[in-house]
Amino acid sequence: MIDPELTLAAGAQPQFDYADPTAARATIARLGATLAERRYWKDLEDAVSYQDVTIPNAEDGRLIPIRIYTPNSAATPRGAIVFYHGGGFMVGDLNVEHFRCLMWAQATGAVLVSCDYRLSPEHRYPAAVDDCMGCYLWVRASAADLKVDPARIVVAGVSAGGNLAASVSLLCRDHGIPPACLQMLIYPALDDRMTSQSMNTHTDQPGWRRIDTQHMWAHYLGPDVRDTQVYAAPARAGDVSGLPPAYVMTAELDPLRDEAIDYALCLMAAGVPVDLRNFSGAFHGFDVVKESRLSQYALDEQVFAINRAMANAGVAQPEGLEAKTSLQKVEA
């Protein structure tokens, strides 16, 4: 049963036909742009500065759009959050999770870097993973300019972004790259096989449906996929030892619930520290419903997990330094 305070929001959830990602993308982009233009989160925007820039991908030099959020009152050096938005690898941009990014930056005092990775089906796997890994590597390489402690970098994502955060964590381990101090996986999409109980019972819920998942994997992997790599679907990883600590959040009524829980249990069995939290009465994307106490509880818990990981990984923050970057703003 849906939590009573989420009932109204559940009925108002838009349903998109992800068979046509272009149309869904345009609608979501217009909504995000409207909210940003109206400064819907003015109080947070007054507390956090942000700028849109492009960075080069170290692999091929291709430019990746990012948004850098810097709390106005935070001390340095501070931690950093590398964030990947959701949208089934098909939709989403730098505006779609603007509220969460503002809130996390303000509440944690960390610099947050949101990555506008390439979308499918125009850019299938591994394009999004390449961009997200490039963004993570750039934050590590730019730690001094960003005034952040490289030991206190969190990699985080929601839905498809949770997949990308898990994939970046696997890539770092497998290529000897210094890991994040926490991988934060918020109702992540991890398994292209779609065989879990929740995937077969919660087929038509608010926020995300089984048919949306089918379109997601078809667009992301393409029609000719034969052997899905673990960096595309981390649930296929046979060895998850040596990965960074994880916070995994799921929602009871989400078709993606069980694959995320299974992945968290695999991490635990491999000796990886894991905080696993399932929210009863909640659906996919519930935690940005402003009117719900359950949503606020979930967001507060996310902030606690980030702060805890950074405190355990880093050193105390000295006072009085303002973070700056040498990057140029993207021309309009």
Rank of each mutant, 00 (worst) to 15 (best):
D52S: 10
N95H: 15
A80F: 09
R78F: 06
G79F: 02
P65C: 09
A74F: 03
A80N: 02
H85F: 15
L102Q: 01
N57P: 06
A105K: 00
D60C: 13
N95G: 12
S73E: 08
N95Y: 14
V96F: 05
M90D: 00
F89E: 03
I66L: 14
R100H: 07
V53W: 06
I68L: 11
S73K: 09
N57S: 14
G86H: 08
E97I: 08
A107T: 04
G92I: 13
I81G: 01
Q106F: 04
R100W: 01
R67M: 04
W104T: 03
A75V: 04
Y84H: 14
R67F: 12
S73A: 14
I81W: 04
D60T: 13
A58H: 14
R78W: 05
R78N: 00
A105C: 05
P65I: 10
G61Q: 07
D93P: 11
W104S: 00
P65K: 03
R67G: 01
P77N: 03
D52H: 03
V82G: 01
G88L: 08
E97T: 10
C101P: 03
G92F: 07
F99L: 13
T70W: 04
M103V: 00
I81S: 01
Y69M: 03
Y69C: 03
C101Y: 02
G86Q: 06
R67Y: 08
G88T: 10
E59I: 14
V91C: 11
L102I: 06
P56R: 11
R62I: 09
D60P: 06
M90L: 15
S73Y: 04
G87C: 09
P65T: 11
L63F: 12
P77R: 03
T70I: 15
R100Q: 10
T54P: 00
W104F: 12
H98R: 04
F99T: 01
A58L: 10
A58G: 05
L63A: 15
G92Q: 06
T76F: 01
S73G: 12
G61N: 10
Y84F: 15
I55Q: 03
G87M: 05
H98N: 11
F83S: 02
I55Y: 08
A107N: 12
A80P: 07
G88Y: 10
I68S: 06
W104G: 00
H98D: 15
A74Y: 08
V82Y: 01
H85R: 14
M103W: 07
N95Q: 09
G92A: 13
R78Q: 06
D52M: 05
V82N: 00
F83E: 00
T54E: 14
A75T: 07
P65G: 12
I81M: 07
R78S: 06
T76V: 13
A105Q: 01
A105M: 02
V91F: 08
F99Y: 15
V82R: 02
V91T: 15
L94E: 06
T54F: 11
Y84V: 06
P71Y: 04
V96L: 09
I68K: 02
V82I: 13
G88V: 13
A58P: 04
I55P: 02
I81Y: 07
T76Y: 02
L94S: 12
D52G: 03
V96N: 11
